[in-house]
Design a protein around this nucleic acid. Sequence first.
RNA 1: GUCCCCAUCGUCUAGCCUGGCCUAGGACGCCGGCCUUUCAAGCCGGCAACACGGGUUCAAAUCCCGUUGGGGACGCCA
Length: 470
Amino acid sequence: MTEVRVRFAPSPTGHLHVGGLRTALFNWLFARRHGGKFILRIEDTDRDRSTDAAIEAIVNGLRWAGLDWDEGPHRQSERLELYREKARELFERGRAYWCVCTPEELETRRKEAQAKGESLKYDGRCRERGLTAPAEPAALRFRSPQEGQTVVEDLIKGTITFDNAVLDDLIILRSNGYPTYNLSVVIDDALMGITHVIRGDDHVNNAPRQVPLFEALEYPVPKFAHLPMILGSDKSRLSKRHGATSVLAYQEMGYLPQALVNYLVRLGWSHGDQEIFSIRDMIDKFAFDHVQSSAAVFNPEKLQWLNAEYIKQGESRRIAELLLPFLEQQGYDRDGLVHPRGGIEAVVPHLRERAKTLVEMADWTMPYLTEPVAMDEAAAGKFLTPAIAPSLNKFAERVKTVEPFTKETLDPVLQTILEEDHLKMGKFAQPLRVALTGRTFSPGIYEVMELLGKDLTIKRLERALNHIGS
RNA sequence: GUCCCCAUCGUCUAGCCUGGCCUAGGACGCCGGCCUUUCAAGCCGGCAACACGGGUUCAAAUCCCGUUGGGGACGCCA
């Protein structure tokens, strides 16, 4: 059996979006599953729209997601001579012809056809003109077969049959000398030894156009697998108006790469009822027979749930590392003012159960890492009242002698105050919480105090008392 | 308009190929309860789907045909 070779071939015209990442992921999984090669190829034959920044964004996005490639990135713009040579070959063999219709003329004719409700395909008026060396700007068109059928055996959708009569004579070389997608993709897939073309559903109609090109060039035809589209909530193609579509945006919103990857792999693929997959799991279990053939709606809530799961399950140390940039973004200074007992890592276990994203988690972590802490005035108004001040004050005083400063030693002190002042835990814990963290929600109150340590606990209690007094 | 693809809870899906085990399972979300020092988490429970119509068959979510609906493509973009 020959080695599996697949590729992800994005055009560098913008950021890497979730649909692209999923295509890359499925290719990568298939390669890893079969011990094959995953190749990254940049399809930048449109020199007007391709940018280096976009290439960098794609590369960074894939790296962030943990997808590594075995070859590339190859850039088609560096292989232009190759495509021109092959195009020339097709012309010499009568499989291609020069077309002098201008883009404007073509556009006009398309509009007319549309208005009349006719087929939009090229009318073939240059097909039999036999132009050999046109003086005016000319594009080279592939002479597509017009009779019979082209059958594509798709690994996901099964047999797809097309009447060749609907095939366009597609342009393979632009009048500026640059190849078009359909030519370069066929040549590269063949020369790079691609065995399986795994790409989005939006390419199914390209398959019957490319198959004859493979054949005309005397290349073996690869196998095809067309992945279902990812749709927005209104079932139209996923776009910006449905919310974030770029991988970078999810990174910035505090999603773990593993969570996004896990979400994406389940969008169109399943393995029984399993929802959570380690990378190892995905590689071991991935197969096309359980790839869905219908489109899927992107569901941000489920992604968020998965993200929370990964935050909960992740190693504290790793979560702390991932969290750091988000903390810094919120003003935390590494050499900062407060050193929590045990560092960020010590705080992580107490917040990981609650956080849905790293952004949220960073925000909740701040009270343990910075001083002074921001006070939520609404919370202060509600809980830091003159009525509770005496109890708070009593607690602040008594806590000064507590040693060591742990739940076990703090609990009796607090319980005694509850008894003396006829308070329920709930009535006292909330004001205490607001005093210590500046907000109404936090980990358990004893955990909060342990995290802060005695000095900071007292300092914040005193500040809260001042706040009430003023 | 033409061509291609698709169709199970709101969403992701299992089941479909190899009809009966399906009074259709799981997950997210939603609703309710429990737990509780807050917010979460967790646990328990609930709502909720085989698009429609014909066939085939003793039997259809599963096979066939049609209808409807949705998506995609129709570029000197990829």
